[in-house]
Design a protein around this nucleic acid. Structure first.
Length: 257
DNA sequence: ATGGCAATGTTTCATTGA
């Protein structure tokens, strides 16, 4: 099965691109971030017509996540948020699809190192770590996909010198990201040889996409069971080339049955 | 040092993103 993650930066604006991409890529599961809409306004009917069911955790204007599953599959045991972590921001939704536990995450941005939002980001990542450890104990087939807002290594950054110490690459954030993997998760992208300078996000400004001035901040983390079944993982840059694109590109992992 | 681009709602600017 094909499992994907895409920060669409508004489901309303990006719906035509999402529908085109689903028709072309035909993933079985898609984790969406920054849908920026409340659940009642989520375009269920359009996605249903395209062959997808959805589990949605939305809010007005900001954040919001969803999991799409090809209609033949069932979205079971849907859970919103991180249990025990009180948070008004809708950043996490989980569901079980065809025996695989899927956790869709939109990690906080962090704004600037040392800011209140940065502290919130670190607290949020620590809470996510505890949650994922518990999920892993319950679900041997676990996939955690989303926008982590952390570039794990310098090779995930177009200009490590310019970014040194900045939010998204600071050592506390990277340590928090690595801690997510410790209970037994692998970064699917790094299971394979990859082209250098592969990124998943490019700033809208300064012609960043044309210069490939990006960061690899969107990832798919796989439990050992799923990592062994993983046959490939790549970034699909095609949607980023379109008119009025999301600033993020989809990341796709291929899992054998 | 700053802004540059995009989306949203509180809209003709402020906030947030990364």
């Amino acid at each position: 099965m094909k499992l994907a993650t895409w920060n669409v930066n508004s489901i309303k604006v990006r719906l035509p691109q999402l529908l085109d991409w689903l028709a072309a890529a035909r993933p079985e599961v898609v984790c969406l971030q920054e849908i920026k809409t409340e659940e009642p306004k989520f375009p269920r009917a359009e996605l249903k017509a395209a062959g997808y069911e959805a589990a949605v955790s939305g809010q007005k204007a900001y954040n919001g996540v969803a999991i799409l599953a090809a209609s033949a599959a069932v979205l079971a045991d849907v859970q919103e948020g991180i249990p025990g972590f009180d948070d008004a921001q809708k950043r996490v939704i989980a569901a079980t699809v065809s025996g695989t536990r899927v956790v869709c995450v939109y990690c906080p941005n962090g704004q600037a190192v040392g800011s209140d939002k940065y502290d919130y980001k670190l607290r949020w990542l620590a809470a996510l770590e505890r949650y994922l450890e518990a999920e892993l104990a319950r679900h041997p087939a676990l996939a955690v996909a989303g926008d982590f807002n952390v570039a794990p290594e310098d090779r995930d950054v177009h200009d490590p010198k310019a970014w040194e110490g900045q939010v998204h690459v600071s050592e506390p954030e990277r340590a928090a990201w690595r801690a997510l993997l410790e209970p037994g998760l692998k970064d699917a992208f790094r299971l394979f040889d990859q082209p250098e300078k592969t990124f998943s996000w490019w700033d809208y400004r300064m012609r960043a996409f044309r210069r490939n001035a990006g960061l690899r901040i969107d990832q798919i983390l796989l439990s050992q069971d799923l990592a062994e079944r993983c046959r490939g993982c790549s970034v699909d840059k095609a949607p980023r080339r379109l008119e009025r694109p999301s600033d993020h590109a989809p990341v796709v992992a291929e899992l054998s049955d």
